[in-house]
Lab assay of single mutants.
Amino acid sequence: MGFKLLSKLLVYLTASIMAIASPLAFSVDSSGEYPTVSEIPVGEVRLYQIADGVWSHIATQSFDGAVYPSNGLIVRDGDELLLIDTAWGAKNTAALLAEIEKQIGLPVTRAVSTHFHDDRVGGVDVLRAAGVATYASPSTRRLAEVEGNEIPTHSLEGLSSSGDAVRFGPVELFYPGAAHSTDNLIVYVPSASVLYGGCAIYELSRTSAGNVADADLAEWPTSIERIQQHYPEAQFVIPGHGLPGGLDLLKHTTNVVKAHTNRSVVE
């Protein structure tokens, strides 16, 4: 069995187990497998329904001669939608809004960016022009300005110390501490036991640490421990890039980060 097929099978099995364990909360999309990078042309966006009122959005972007996937989250909030992270750029984010209108038909009224990198804030200006209120932590807003990236308009308070959590509509926002970046936030959907790890969490097929220019490698494993301790009931975990899975993604990420750190020390 090929690795790609095995990865998709694991996603399907995880979703099936969740649907059985929580039949009222989960209505997993039966329309197909989780979209992969090879299936999404740059400039297009796919939506994948995880649970009743919960979707991931998947886009792709060219970077350094390669094409990478990027995940975000959409959560229903009454007759409105909360968006977590842009679709990595203005063109993708405009396509995301169009796809949401086509498939869901509810307005996106608020959006949260989970850290300051372009795959999370690139497209904020498109959201703002569409009347979406954009939010991020003060740290993310400051770092985005320093980096020359787009800056969300509103500040999220109460997320300055490791372990801080605040309720934001249908989700809980959690600051686990520094990891992929010093400002990275985690998003949890309690009604569906869905954990969105953003770039602080890796997919299972990833074996290298990737972009760690703004990471705190020493603190990252401790931050992941905080996530595990705060959300032990999480059933569906979405990484910032690639295929979702279960809580095993947290341990896998820790292993990859520690291996990278150990290699760096040896070198």
Rank of each mutant, 00 (worst) to 15 (best):
P221R: 08
G2C: 08
D164R: 11
W220L: 02
P221S: 09
T60W: 15
R142T: 13
V42K: 10
G246D: 14
P221K: 08
P190R: 13
L106P: 05
A94T: 15
D125W: 08
A130F: 10
I151L: 08
I50C: 00
A25I: 14
V124I: 08
R167F: 11
I201Q: 02
G197Y: 01
L217T: 12
H241E: 00
F236R: 10
P170Y: 04
L6A: 13
G105E: 09
Y175W: 06
L83V: 09
H241Q: 04
A130D: 09
A94Y: 14
S70W: 00
V132L: 04
E145D: 13
T14R: 05
F236M: 09
R76P: 04
A259Q: 12
Q61M: 12
G43K: 08
E157D: 14
S162G: 14
V132C: 02
P176T: 03
G163T: 08
T261C: 06
A94P: 04
V28Y: 15
Y34P: 15
E145I: 09
H117C: 00
G43N: 12
L73H: 03
V108E: 03
R141Y: 04
S27L: 10
A144F: 03
Q49F: 09
A87H: 00
A90L: 07
Q103W: 12
S113C: 05
S113Q: 04
S205G: 09
G177Q: 03
L24D: 15
A95R: 12
L81W: 02
V166P: 03
V11D: 09
Y202G: 05
E39H: 10
P152G: 01
Y48I: 15
A209C: 04
V187R: 01
R141G: 03
I74T: 06
E33S: 08
H230E: 11
L159D: 03
A215H: 05
S16R: 08
G53I: 08
D183I: 02
E157W: 13
S56P: 09
H230G: 12
L249G: 01
N255Q: 10
N149H: 13
S160E: 14
Q228L: 11
L82Q: 00
L195R: 00
D119Q: 01
T207C: 06
K251W: 12
D52P: 09
E157V: 12
W55K: 00
L5D: 12
A179D: 03
Y135S: 01
D248G: 13
A66H: 13
A200S: 07
A178F: 07
F63S: 10
E157T: 12
W55N: 01
P232I: 09
G158F: 09
T134C: 01
L143P: 04
A90Y: 08
Q49W: 09
G43Y: 07
D118S: 07
V37N: 15
V54I: 07
N262R: 11
Q103Y: 14
S22E: 13
L249P: 02
T207N: 15
S70I: 00
E267A: 04
P41S: 12
N262Y: 10
G32T: 07
A94N: 13
S16N: 05
G148A: 09
T134Q: 00
S62G: 14
D79K: 11
L159M: 08
K8Y: 15
N262G: 13
P176Q: 02
N149V: 10
L13V: 14
I17E: 08
E99F: 09
V126S: 06
D216P: 02
V37K: 12
L247H: 13
H57R: 03
R263E: 14
G72L: 00
P244K: 04
G131D: 09
D119N: 05
S223M: 01
T109W: 06
A25M: 12
E80I: 07
H180P: 02
F116H: 03
P244A: 10
Y34R: 15
V126E: 06
G53A: 09
H241W: 00
S137K: 08
E33R: 11
V11Y: 07
Y231H: 05
G242C: 06
A179C: 05
L185F: 05
F26P: 08
T114S: 07
L127A: 03
L96K: 00
R142H: 13
Q235D: 13
A59I: 10
A209W: 06
F168L: 08
V54N: 01
N71K: 04
S56C: 15
V257Q: 02
D85H: 04
G163V: 07
S30M: 15
G163C: 02
A94L: 14
P232K: 14
V108P: 08
G89Q: 00
S162A: 14
V194R: 01
T222A: 12
P176L: 04
I227T: 08
A19G: 12
L9E: 14
G43A: 08
A98E: 14
G177P: 01
V171H: 02
D125P: 03
H241I: 00
A234T: 07
S137E: 03
S113F: 05
L82W: 06
S137D: 02
V45T: 07
F3G: 09
G89K: 04
A234C: 02
H260L: 07
G2T: 05
A144R: 08
N149K: 15
L82I: 10
R167L: 11
S161G: 14
I238V: 09
W88R: 01
P221M: 09
S193V: 08
G163L: 07
V237G: 02
S181F: 02
I58C: 06
E39T: 12
E99R: 13
A129W: 09
L97A: 00
V132M: 04
D118W: 04
T207H: 12
R120G: 02
H260Y: 09
T93H: 05
L73A: 05
F236P: 01
E233W: 10
R206H: 14
L9R: 15
E267V: 04
A259K: 09
N149W: 05
L185G: 03
A66V: 13
C199P: 01
P41Y: 08
I40V: 15
S205H: 12
N255P: 05
V189A: 05
F116N: 03
G43F: 07
T109F: 08
W88C: 01
F174Q: 02
H180C: 01
N71Y: 04
E33N: 10
T93L: 01
V166L: 12
V189D: 03
D248Q: 14
L249S: 04
V266W: 11
E267P: 10
S113Y: 02
S223L: 02
V237F: 05
S155M: 12
E147F: 15
I104T: 05
A178Q: 09
S62M: 07
K251T: 11
Y202N: 15
A90F: 08
I74A: 04
L5F: 13
S70N: 02
G240H: 07
F63D: 15
A66Y: 13
G122Q: 09
S22A: 12
A209I: 07
P35E: 15
T222V: 10
L96C: 00
D64Y: 13
F168P: 04
Y12N: 10
I186F: 06
N262F: 08
V124C: 02
L83I: 09
A95S: 12
T36A: 14
R141E: 03
G43T: 05
P41I: 11
A192P: 06
W88P: 00
S137A: 08
V37H: 15
E172H: 05
M1G: 05
A259T: 09
D214N: 08
G245F: 01
A129N: 15
V67T: 15
A94M: 15
T86I: 05
V189P: 00
L82H: 03
S191E: 13
A59H: 06
L9A: 14
S31N: 10
K4M: 12
T60V: 15
T140Y: 05
T36S: 10
L5H: 09
Q61T: 09
P107D: 09
Y202R: 07
V75A: 06
A15Y: 10
E147S: 12
L106S: 10
A130S: 11
Y196T: 01
A51W: 07
V124R: 02
L9K: 11
N71G: 03
G32W: 10
L243Y: 15
I227R: 02
R110F: 07
P244H: 09
S208W: 08
S137Q: 08
A192G: 12
G240V: 04
K8C: 14
L156F: 06
D52W: 08
A218D: 12
